[in-house]
Design a protein around this nucleic acid. Sequence first.
DNA 1: TACTATTTTTGTATTAATTACAATTTAGTT
DNA 2: AACTAAATTGTAATTAATACAAAAATAGTA
Lengths: 143, 143
Amino acid sequence: MEIFSERKIIEMLRQAGIRPSIHRLSVLEYVANNRTHPVAEEIYEFIASKYTGVSKTTVYNSLHTLVEAQILRPLEMGSNTTRYDLAIQKPHSHFKCKSCGKIFDMNLPADIDKMAAPGFRVESTDLHFAGVCPKCIKITENK
Amino acid sequence: MEIFSERKIIEMLRQAGIRPSIHRLSVLEYVANNRTHPVAEEIYEFIASKYTGVSKTTVYNSLHTLVEAQILRPLEMGSNTTRYDLAIQKPHSHFKCKSCGKIFDMNLPADIDKMAAPGFRVESTDLHFAGVCPKCIKITENK
DNA sequence: TACTATTTTTGTATTAATTACAATTTAGTT
DNA sequence: AACTAAATTGTAATTAATACAAAAATAGTA
């Protein structure tokens, strides 16, 4: 998996016209380099362990700014808590394992937008699968 | 759009082994016959206007029971509030208009499940589009 | 019909995620 | 250094949803 250097992260922010403040930088660095589709809480915990006295609001602010700039992409995977994914990468779909809860990146057909009815302007597409991942299938079978 | 008679709704519940209590019946009737993908609040308001003294918990209970029985299908369309859709109908995708907020039913490719990586057991698929609907495109153009 | 067990409903309290907002701090610019 | 704008903080509020125990309704059976 591609790892983004701090330099690269700063560049991403600069290009979007966003000041690379220390916390913002950290939020993006975490989401970009830990491709676990984390929720705000998880990101907050990381930042809080790195710097003392960080407010949760700051994390939310940063996330909103980054989503606004289309650097991050909010994801809803059936738990009513928003997850975050790096937007600047090949379009892909997601698979959530009902057993272990993990979220996997999957393929996305290139022409998927054509599935929408004519006359509608598609700006974003989300394809989500839910089911059981190979590892969990194996675990269930060996019972 | 197909309208489900009370008789039909009761039959659906019976077949799933669910007692057709008056509120449950009402919840399902509302979701089945008002294909607006309503949220719990909207359903509650309908029920509350029909019968006095209905608890919101009852609506949530009914919705859970109906989802459990796979009669309804929970939907998350980017607002962290769950919407409900009738499950017993042709599989379809959804389009949310960013301008008017309306949700439209769209086509769903029959072989979409094959897009998941091999080895994964797909149990449900959600395809969501977001963008602008034809009506709202027109409104924006005439400015 | 009356009794009992089970299901359904209620109502209140609680949790969890997120937002609002005013005050403070920090950083960039003249 | 002084000024301006942006970022951060902290607390309070909001909103959706859940937990749970008590009360009411219902079905099945004696």
